[in-house]
Computed example of a mutant assay.
Amino acid sequence: MFLFALWLLVRLWRRRRSGQPDSAPGYERAGALLGENDRAFYRQLAEAVGSRGQVFARVQAASVVLPRKGMPRRQWQQAFGRLAMRRFEFVICHAGNGEPQVVIDTGNEARRGDPFLKDACQAAGVPVVRLDPDEGLSVAAIGKKLEPFLYDRYDSIENISPRRALHVPVDDTAFADSDPLGPITR
């Protein structure tokens, strides 16, 4: 026991003497998650989607699609492994429950996106829309392409407020403070 304590003290003394921090050494900040062009496109997407969804960038594919339940364990792990290191540039999720609504494929002519990911999304029922930032689409044009896939926060039953479910016409301003979802806006 004495030898272990002595070894630990010597190790700590050497580390402090060498100037290495006690935590994980050898790391540095990576910088911006998105490049300048991707940031500009993200702002366009966010404006086009508005309050009907949330735009997420650089999303792990396994956060959007998973292998089906009930597969043999080894097969499931292999299928998951094919997803593990892949990502989507942009995913638009439901504003209320966070479920993925649509995946944005930003592949240009040289890289048309990942065919495996497109097939996985199709099998899982997650639509994929190709929007090339180099095409110079306006916010209105992006919104028009995404319109069929966007739902407002009231379109999901778990997000409908009781007064809306009963179809009771009320003055929204009177309920703005009491309704957790806020006033109805259309």
Rank of each mutant, 00 (worst) to 15 (best):
F2M: 02
L3R: 15
R11Q: 00
R14N: 00
R14L: 01
R15S: 00
R15W: 01
R15L: 00
S18T: 01
G19L: 02
D22E: 10
S23R: 02
S23N: 04
G26V: 03
G26H: 04
G26Y: 08
E28F: 11
E28H: 08
R29G: 01
A32F: 03
L33T: 08
L33M: 04
L34A: 12
G35R: 13
D38S: 12
R39W: 05
R39F: 01
A40W: 08
F41Q: 06
Y42I: 04
Q44F: 04
A46D: 13
E47S: 09
A48S: 08
A48Q: 12
A48K: 12
A48C: 13
V49E: 02
V49G: 02
V55L: 11
V55Q: 08
V55C: 10
F56R: 12
F56A: 11
A57T: 12
R58V: 11
R58P: 05
R58H: 15
V59Q: 12
Q60V: 01
Q60K: 14
A61C: 09
A61S: 10
A62G: 11
A62C: 13
S63Y: 11
S63G: 14
V65M: 09
V65K: 02
R68A: 15
G70Q: 04
G70L: 05
P72V: 10
R74D: 15
R74T: 10
Q75I: 14
W76T: 07
A79R: 04
G81R: 07
A84D: 14
A84S: 11
M85N: 15
M85S: 15
R87N: 11
R87I: 00
F88L: 00
F88M: 03
F88E: 04
E89V: 05
F90W: 10
F90L: 10
I92Q: 09
I92Y: 11
G96P: 09
G96K: 08
N97P: 08
N97E: 11
E99P: 04
P100G: 05
P100S: 07
Q101F: 07
V102D: 04
V103L: 05
I104E: 02
I104P: 03
D105L: 03
N108C: 09
E109D: 14
E109C: 05
R111M: 04
R111P: 00
P115Y: 07
P115E: 08
F116D: 04
L117W: 06
A120E: 13
A120S: 11
Q122L: 10
Q122K: 02
A123D: 08
G125W: 02
V126Q: 01
P127I: 06
R130L: 01
L131R: 02
D132I: 09
P133T: 05
D134Q: 15
D134S: 14
S138C: 04
A140K: 10
A140I: 00
K144A: 09
L146C: 03
E147I: 09
P148G: 07
F149H: 15
F149Y: 15
F149P: 10
D152S: 12
R153K: 13
R153W: 02
Y154T: 13
D155S: 10
S156R: 12
E158D: 13
N159L: 00
P162H: 07
R163H: 09
A165D: 06
L166E: 12
L166D: 07
H167C: 10
V168S: 06
P169F: 07
V170L: 14
D172C: 14
T173F: 01
A174G: 05
A176P: 07
A176Y: 06
A176C: 06
D177F: 12
D179R: 15
G182E: 02
P183G: 05
I184K: 13
T185P: 00
R186N: 13
